[in-house]
Nucleic acid binder design. Structure first.
Lengths: 246, 246
DNA sequence: CGGGTCTTTGATTCGTGTCAATGCTAGTGG
DNA sequence: CCACTAGCATTGACACGAATCAAAGACCCG
């Protein structure tokens, strides 16, 4: 069973959370943030590897990652799994599925992770009182659409080396926003998970990472990555002759 | 310039629109639908091939397709275009981009098309008064996320023949919902557009359609499609050995 | 009826997937 | 503390699916 943590007044809340600017409260006034804070009565600890929710589970809340990271994946009729996203601290989980009232993907922790619980019923009530919160949610949902569209672009229009390069650059941006080093980070996912996400095999990912390292673009040791030339990686993506077609 | 049609009382509104159950009003009460109807003061006629909005255009409204069909596409740094969706009557356009306040994709009409204009400012006001409308929008946005995730699944986890088969089945479902024949329809997009959408070349799409026809699964003459064996198409998707990996 | 666009089909190439063997690392228990 | 093991990662050889290049055919619109 997952560890549910009930919060009390002393616990750290949205108002003081370091992730405030990235998470739901972004764009709210301090007093609005305070109202939101009061909604979050619970956090959940999810050990590495745990299936947190799965396709078909009733959707009663959405979850903001406080620390750690997760992946979401879905499965097609032939049983093949496709990872649809990796989520870092400050990012929201469980946004598909509103339409059905049930989760449409599986969520699994890549490492020990802690999420804040936003009950839909509570949230609903509060959005009526705080217009800005409603805007914020539209934005969050819309951002998820855009995120997914970009993955589609990557899968449909880019070759393997471009996909891996933009994957690394994307992670770099997100780690930077979190206040971590832009050029050095640890991959929380395996080569197989990266490959699955990018529509490649784990061998292709491994080969490309090795190649990038040989070319001096990155340094890589297991899951420890160092970006040596972001502009070089960007050139890979930009350059016409690398594009899939035409 | 695009033809803007101002609506008056006599014009056909949401309340009487045949698409009501698919479009925004779905799930609203008649009186709520009526309120929504009053928001829609304008429709726009978009001739075939017209770029309706493009990346960077300020997002002031969202658009519901009343008749016709459109595509949305985005472009990567190297100039390659990726179609992210085909939209039929009753479907909503322009849902990404809330986060930025500007459109994040281009929208182009596949045929002469007419859209209903939902001004964001008006919509915003009304969602405060009608809680169900807010839910409805969450659902619509979330459905778009799910739609995109399914495209990711198709691009990342399926082989070419499965992509084309599920593309056809998906269209069939949507046409059925619109009240058209489930087994016979006209493709509004070219082979190249299908290929682009599915991450394939136009030649591959053409070959697969020919193959499906030779196998008796479909009949196809130019853009006129007839599905002869949906179960056969489904088997292609389901069957393990056709799956991309493992 | 002609010209342009879209589609089909074939021959060939090339990028990735597949299969297989080896190496590395972290975690476990003796 | 070290041997053992179980995953994960790397690298190579090869095969195959889909892209590319090319040419001909079908259709639509003026």
């Amino acid at each position: 069973m997952l560890k549910h943590l009930l919060l009390n007044k002393e616990s750290i809340h949205c108002s003081t959370c370091m992730l405030g600017h990235l998470c739901v409260p972004g764009g709210l006034t301090p007093s609005e943030t305070h109202r939101l804070t009061e909604l979050i009565k619970e956090r959940i600890r999810i050990p590495k590897g745990t299936l947190f929710f799965k396709v078909g589970d009733p959707l009663t809340a959405i979850y903001s990652i406080r620390s750690g990271s997760m992946k979401t994946q879905l499965e097609n009729e032939s049983g093949h799994v496709q990872i649809t996203g990796f989520f870092l601290a400050g990012e929201l989980l469980g946004l598909d599925g509103f339409s059905e009232g049930a989760h449409l993907s599986n969520a699994i922790a890549l490492e020990d992770t802690e999420v804040c619980v936003l009950k839909l019923s509570d949230l609903d009530a509060l959005t009526h009182e705080i217009p800005a919160l409603q805007h914020q949610f539209w934005k969050i949902l819309s951002k998820e659409i855009s995120r997914s569209h970009n993955l589609v672009l990557s899968l449909g229009a880019m070759r393997s080396e471009q996909r891996v390069a933009s994957f690394l650059l994307n992670l770099s941006t997100r780690f930077t926003n979190l206040g971590y080093s832009p050029n050095e980070f640890i991959l929380r996912m395996s080569r197989e998970e990266i490959g699955n996400y990018l529509g490649l095999t784990l061998e292709t990912v491994s080969r490309l990472l090795s190649r990038f390292a040989k070319e001096g673009l990155i340094r890589i040791h297991q899951r420890q990555v160092q970006l040596l030339s972001k502009s070089g990686l960007n050139d890979l993506i930009k350059h016409e002759q690398n594009s899939k077609k035409k």
